[in-house]
Design a protein around this nucleic acid. Structure first.
Lengths: 227, 227
DNA sequence: GGAACTCCTTGACGTAGGTCAAGTTTGCGC
DNA sequence: GCGCAAACTTGACCTACGTCAAGGAGTTCC
């Protein structure tokens, strides 16, 4: 119950409901655990469920015809995945894979459809969520076409910094650099070089493989600006 | 009434309603005409209305901080614009501008909110629409990062060809090449060169400034494939 | 705790495509 | 129609970034 509770109360899409209603919703949750490295679904799977991340971290990525991977986004606690397949009934053309051991809350199609019928507020919140996602992808698109890699890396680091509130300028990279590179529309080699430059200029400091210490926030912000 | 009727009956988001209900919805429509070249809204405008295109064609684009324009999509009859500002109440950070003289149907925030409360089916359809848009932007993103300009141009022409049903392989470009270039994540110069190459290889034939005759669909399809 | 990964970094190199600049065409307004 | 401005094309050049390759550094799994 604790799990279901968390998924229902902390997730934006059920925010519009009363506590009573949230409890009702929670009854339909089925838990799902995935180990790091395991896929939740792969392109073409006939899934039609809505997934809410309860704990852990996963990546959503698109596989091009040539097998090339493009990371579209990462999701963590409270994020929702699978609306598209859920709404359209189409098979997903993307891939959801656990970056760490993760727990998810699953709603199957029939259950959630009924819930939505009973509680139209859920659609409202889903609209909001989708609309934010859309804005975010559009921002990513504009960034990739109109800034160079240095600017994108800087913006990405700023993003991570602000996500981890508390003025602690140490950020932990959520994925391997290889994957971050595809998310930023570049290659591991180029990403590595740009990070090395930022490090050389004293803007950041690389600590091990996964951690970055931000030394000069202002400089990062200046770099993140187009030209 | 004819206008309102068209906007309401032909648009996906009102598709779930009965004819009776559609008539009710139509009462809240306010018409809006724009001349070619005129903006409907610009970044920062305090609009909070939902717009449905009744006739004509417009472009939605994003202006980067340096003034650089990135066309996000074009919209025509039946397409919906402004959901994001409508849903979030935020000011838009994009720009809607008429490519031809166009007519739109406008819903103000209060009216549509009420309608949605009365007819939850509207949210359902909006979800569907947004979800399709999201998929489309993600596709665009993947295309820009994983194919070269030739492939993107080929894919774009194929897109236009299939949109204009009827096996007539003549497509009319919806925008100036300058703008198409930004949509494809490139520059007018490069687009011009790639079109010239396609023309030289006998795949297409350029007719005037705006029309392209597709001579070899198969070749285009081959080029549109990644590598 | 060591072997064997995989991940990452660095170097050298080639090139697609961006930029700048100068013509050419086209369509629009008057 | 005429003239002008915007749109487009073509050329020359350059550079950011991708690719290929080889050497290190961390992890993970027995």
């Amino acid at each position: 119950m604790a799990k279901g509770d968390l998924c229902v109360t902390r997730v934006p899409i059920f925010q519009g409901l009363t506590h009573q209603q949230q409890l009702h919703v929670a009854e339909f949750i089925r838990p799902l655990s995935v180990r790091r490295g395991e896929p939740v679904y792969t392109p073409g799977d006939s899934v039609s469920r809505l997934l809410v991340v309860h704990s852990g971290q996963l990546k959503v990525s698109h596989l091009a015809a040539n097998g090339q991977e493009q990371v579209l986004r990462t999701v963590t606690e409270g994020d929702v995945v699978g609306e598209r397949a859920f709404l359209s009934g189409h098979r997903p053309n993307d891939l959801l894979l656990a970056l760490e051991d993760s727990q998810m809350c699953v709603f199957n199609h029939a259950d959630l459809s009924n819930l939505i019928r009973d509680y139209p507020e859920i659609s409202q919140q889903m609209l909001q969520t989708l609309s934010d996602r859309l804005a975010s992808v559009e921002r990513q698109l504009v960034a990739i076409t109109s800034s160079d890699v240095t600017a994108r890396v800087a913006a990405y680091l700023l993003d991570l910094t602000s996500a981890g509130r508390g003025r602690i300028p140490t950020v932990r990279l959520p994925m391997a650099k290889k994957e971050i590179a595809t998310y930023l529309g570049t290659t591991p080699e180029t990403l590595s070089r740009r990070l090395a430059e930022l490090s050389a200029s004293g803007t950041i400091q690389l600590q091990g493989r996964r951690d970055v210490l931000v030394l000069d926030l202002d400089a990062l912000e200046r770099l993140a600006m187009p030209q």
